[in-house]
């Protein structure tokens, strides 16, 4: 939580200090950041300790390191803002506010609210399924010859090839062969794919109707 306030403070100092890099006072930062004064004060203290900002008389200045972080936060903010307005058709002001929260990791409530709002009727069926119920069976729980529908895949990042071969949620595959050590052959989109046991166990499925 406090990290988001810290990032907001950095961004505020970057925005307020302007071209001539004047020091920004506590009051100014507090006015720009939507948080309790106490929180802002704490965040500023941490930033000073962390070497992101320095105290200059009545105000604060960004160090080179702090400037880098602030600019990165600013860019992230901008791109998220654009993304949201593209997607929601929101007016820029509202999107900007939303993005302000989003950029630090959104609260669950916001996600839910946004998701319900965004989810149109045309969305792919399998995508909604990922979140809700936990699938219980992996490929290894089925017998040779079974046709199953993939419900979820764990750690897809590690096994991008699975995705490219067509093993994705919603896909119907046939368990062609299962050896004693649980190495399997599955038929996906007409092709036979051999999988090691540890890969097969990341694929969750349910029996296809």
């Amino acid at each position: 939580m406090s990290s988001s306030v810290r990032e907001d403070c950095l961004e505020a100092i970057l925005a307020l200090s302007g071209k001539d890099c004047r020091p920004v006072s506590e009051a100014e930062v507090g006015g720009a950041v939507e948080a309790d004064t106490a929180e802002v004060m704490a965040a500023l203290r941490t930033l000073v300790t962390g070497g992101d900002i320095t105290r200059e008389g009545e105000g604060y200045m960004l160090t080179p390191q702090g400037k880098k972080t602030a600019e990165s936060v600013f860019r992230k903010h901008r791109v998220l803002e654009c993304f949201l307005s593209e997607m929601l058709g929101m007016d820029t002001g509202a999107a900007s506010k939303e993005a302000c929260v989003l950029e630090h990791g959104v609260s669950d409530e916001t996600i839910d609210r946004l998701s319900t709002y965004i989810q149109g009727p045309g969305r792919h069926r399998s995508m909604r399924r990922g979140s809700g119920h936990r699938p219980r069976h992996t490929l290894l729980d089925f017998a040779e010859g079974d046709t199953v529908e993939v419900t979820m895949i764990r750690c897809t990042g590690k096994n991008r090839r699975l995705m490219d071969l067509g093993v994705i949620p919603g896909e119907k595959i046939i368990l062609q062969r299962k050896l004693g050590n649980n190495a399997v052959v599955v038929t996906v989109k007409g092709a036979d794919i051999a999988l090691s046991p540890e890969i097969a166990s990341t694929i969750f499925a349910e029996k296809a109707a």
Binding site: I111, M127, R160, M163, G170
Partner: peptide, 18 residues
């Protein structure tokens, strides 16, 4: 990151599925 947080699916997966 934002897309993944919403869908529990990385953009790569969504793109592949599409």
């Amino acid at each position: 990151t934002e897309i993944e947080a919403r869908n529990h699916m990385a953009p790569g997966q969504i793109i592949a599925a599409n």
